[in-house]
Structures are given as structure tokens and as C-alpha cells.
């Protein structure tokens, strides 16, 4: 009893230091992080320094590479936009309504996280090719969704969907119904309530989900390459450019393009962090 009281007092003053294992766990964390992530990524940056500035610029701005940026960013943006719209819709329906099969839909939303990207790639290709279930229905109308840019966007929609749903869903669940009731009792129509009460509350989460889907789509490789057709200047994504350069033993060129992508990853990571802290502040306020 005395011991408990004696130990309890300092525990209250500095409660975070009483538990053992700080040095060991932090030490291991930093060691593992360095060996697996930080040192290898720094190898990428150092390798870039073996190029002169002119060589670097030439490697990252050749017409074929620039065309791949345009496709990668454009298709990723479009896919993230579609994900934002349908992701919000899926989250809304899952939180606000009940209907038969809801549990299954909820579980299936995570399929793109669990299904290997290569499997998604060949499966979407089989569906959308001119002899596939969907492709054969669309071909008479002259619509081709496989082996071109459309295919890239569709694959990216598939892999990005869970991000928006899973960021918006909890925020919608926590949203206070009282605010909506207040708006309604003050004479707002349902649409006005959604536009001016609900939408501002889930806005930060929606933007976070959009940014995550966008960032993931930029780096995506496995699901895209099967369905894209991979024609240079037309349907070749940036990660494939890196692979192509590696296969020709152009390590410097591959590294240069990879550094551009890594820089973008850093920016997106900071943007997503900022969005998440904005969202937390919103939730706390």
C-alpha cells in the first residue's frame, strides 16, 4: 500500500516515463526504419548526384517521359475524382440507409486493398477486352475500354475506391444528427441541409480520401500495365518508364525519373498529413 502511494506520486508528475522499454523500442524502431526505408531511399538520391544537371533534366523531360507524366497525373486525377463522387455515395448509403446485402457491400469495399494488383489487372482486362463480358456489350457502340487510356482510368478507379469510402464513413457516422434537425426546423430543405450542414462537416475527410486515392494512383503499377496496352507516348505510365529504363540497364535514367516520383510522394504525404490534422481540428472544434 505504501509502495503504491510512493510510486503513484511520481507517476502522476511524469506519467509518460514510468513504463519501461522506451530506449529499446525507440532504438529498434529507428534502426529498422533506417535499414529498410531511409538508407535505401537515400541511395536513390545519392545515385542521382552521379548525373550532371543537364543529364538529369534530359532524363526527366524527354517527350516520352513527359507524355507518361501527363497520362499518370491526368488519369489519376480523373480516377480520384470518380472515387470522390462514388466513394461519398457509397459511404452515405452505408451509414444512412439499411438495405438487404449492406454488410456484404461494406465488406466488399475493401476488396481492392486485399486483392493483389496483378489479379485485378488481368481480371479487369478479361472483362473489358472485346471478347469479355463488358467489352463485348460495348463494342457494337464503338466503345473500347481496354488497351488504351480508358483502361488506365478504370484500373485506377478500382484500386482507389476504398480510400474515399473509409475516410468519409467514420466522419459521417460521428456527424451530429442534431445539427441536421436544427437546420430542418429552421426551414431548410433536405438539399440545403446537405449542402450547408453535412457537406462542410465531411469536406476535409472527402478531400483527404481524394488525396490518398490520387497519391496511390500515381504510383500504381500492377493493375494498370495489363489493361493499358502500354503504347509509348499514348498509354505508358511513369512507373513503367522506370521499368523500361531498368531493362535497358539505364540505371541513371531510371533513378532520375524515380526521384521525380519520390519527390511527388513526399509532397503528397505532407498534403495528406496537413489534411488529416485539419480534419482532426474540425472534429475537435
Amino acid at each position: 500500500m505504501h509502495a503504491a502511494i510512493a510510486l503513484g506520486a511520481p507517476a502522476r508528475r511524469g506519467p509518460k516515463r514510468v513504463l519501461p522499454g522506451f530506449k529499446v523500442t525507440l532504438g529498434f524502431t529507428l534502426f529498422y526504419l533506417s535499414v529498410i526505408v531511409l538508407i535505401p531511399l537515400s541511395a536513390l538520391v545519392f545515385k542521382t548526384f552521379t548525373l550532371t544537371w543537364d543529364q538529369f533534366v534530359a532524363a526527366v523531360s524527354s517527350p516520352r517521359v513527359v507524355a507518361s507524366y501527363q497520362l499518370t497525373f491526368g488519369a489519376s486525377f480523373l480516377a480520384a475524382l470518380v472515387n470522390a463522387v462514388f466513394g461519398l455515395l457509397v459511404a452515405w448509403v452505408l451509414v444512412r440507409y439499411s438495405f438487404p446485402g449492406k454488410k456484404i457491400v461494406d465488406a466488399l469495399v475493401d476488396l481492392p486493398f486485399a486483392l493483389p494488383t496483378a489479379v485485378a489487372g488481368i481480371s479487369l482486362t478479361a472483362l473489358l477486352a472485346s471478347n469479355g463480358w463488358v467489352g463485348s456489350l460495348l463494342e457494337p457502340y464503338g466503345i473500347n475500354l481496354a488497351f488504351n487510356r480508358n483502361g488506365v482510368v478504370i484500373a485506377l478507379i478500382f484500386i482507389g475506391l476504398p480510400f474515399v469510402v473509409r475516410t468519409v464513413q467514420p466522419v459521417l457516422e460521428d456527424a451530429e444528427k442534431e445539427l441536421e434537425e436544427a437546420a430542418a426546423s429552421l426551414g431548410a430543405t433536405r438539399w440545403q441541409t446537405f449542402r450547408y450542414v453535412i457537406f462542410p462537416a465531411i469536406g476535409p475527410a472527402l478531400l483527404t480520401g481524394f488525396a490518398m486515392a490520387f497519391a496511390r494512383a500515381i504510383g500504381e503499377y500492377g493493375s494498370v500495365i495489363f489493361i493499358a496496352g502500354n503504347m509509348p507516348m499514348v498509354s505508358e505510365i511513369t512507373p513503367l518508364i522506370i521499368i523500361g529504363k531498368l531493362e535497358q540497364y539505364d540505371y541513371a535514367g531510371a533513378t532520375a525519373v524515380a526521384v521525380v516520383m519520390l519527390g511527388f510522394s513526399f509532397v503528397m504525404l505532407l498534403v495528406i498529413n496537413a489534411l488529416q490534422s485539419w480534419q482532426r481540428k474540425r472534429a475537435g472544434a
Binding site: 531511399l41 516520383m261 513526399f266
Partner: peptide, 21 residues
């Protein structure tokens, strides 16, 4: 933030860094 970093790196870039090492 650093712990989350591998999520935002393209898998292709992740493979490349080990080739460079």
C-alpha cells in the same frame, strides 16, 4: 510520418532502391 512513408512511395521505386543498393 516517416513510418507511413512506404505507403506513398510507388512500388516500382521501392524495388529500384534495393537494386541501387
Amino acid at each position: 510520418t516517416l513510418v507511413d512513408l512506404p505507403f506513398s512511395v510507388s512500388p516500382v521505386v521501392a524495388g529500384l532502391v534495393y537494386v541501387l543498393m
